[in-house]
């Protein structure tokens, strides 16, 4: 994915000024930076929720969003929440159901299909949101701190299941996070941003394969991120 010559201001605040970034296809790129540096705005522009003042973003058609909050429809069950997004894509209701169930089972929610969001825990709700995103074939996956509102004990297992699901159908994923260790564990590449206007401070490839990465490698990436932001 190529982002070229991007400009975006809010009033007199120039968030992006001739910003360019290339993101590797079918890899997970972690995007990190201080709050207000424009990460969420960048995701919004890639998904088309916001318009850039100037510049181009290539290969952004059909980007999916995983938000910090699960954003499920409260009056629909876990299964229905996933089925809905397949409505325009899969014509047969039976196949729709089968695909939704498969996706939810991958997220270990096979026994919660008929539960309403209010009867699920925060972690389970976010799992439904992940299943909802992954059952769609979109090439680009945008994740805005999807694990940051969860209990730290839950994050590990959700990230593991997320990776398994991702490996089954890899996409170009942009993963915005504040947590260097989460970036170190999930990302193929880490991009560090500075603010006003948004610039790339540093970018590096995390050496080992994310599916079998050791904690030590993740910590190494984490330390490098810390060093850059300390300067």
């Amino acid at each position: 994915m190529e982002i070229r010559g991007l400009f975006k201001s809010f009033g007199s605040l120039e968030v992006f000024k001739d910003f360019s970034l290339s993101i590797r296809d079918r890899r997970i790129t972690a995007l990190m930076g201080p709050s207000g540096c424009g990460k969420t705005t960048l995701l919004n522009m890639i998904s088309g929720l916001e318009k850039a003042d100037k510049g181009t973003i290539e290969a952004s058609d059909g980007a999916l969003f995983i938000f910090q909050e699960p954003r499920l429809l409260p009056w629909k069950t876990a299964l229905e929440n996933v089925e809905i997004v397949l409505e325009t894509l899969v014509e047969s209701p039976l196949e729709r159901r089968a695909r939704a169930i498969e996706s939810l089972e991958m997220m270990r929610l096979g026994d919660k299909l008929d539960s309403y969001p209010s009867h699920l825990s925060g972690g389970q709700r976010q799992r439904v949101a992940l299943a909802r995103a992954f059952c769609l074939p979109a090439k680009v996956l945008l994740m805005d701190e999807p694990f940051s509102s969860l209990d730290s004990r839950l994050v590990d297992s959700i990230m593991k299941d997320f990776l398994a699901m991702y490996q089954k159908s890899p996409r170009t994923a942009i993963f915005v996070t504040h947590d260097g260790l989460q970036a170190g564990r999930l990302a193929d590449e880490v991009v560090l941003l500075g603010s006003s206007p948004c610039t790339v401070l540093d970018r590096f490839i995390v050496p080992s394969d994310k599916a079998s990465r050791s904690l030590a490698d993740a910590l190494k990436a984490h330390d490098r991120i810390e060093r850059v932001f300390e300067q």
Binding site: S47, L64, R71
Partner: peptide
Amino acid sequence: PQLEQMCLVYGITGKR
């Protein structure tokens, strides 16, 4: 507004 945005991103538009 958050669900509104979700609908937009996930193609839940118009009659749906």
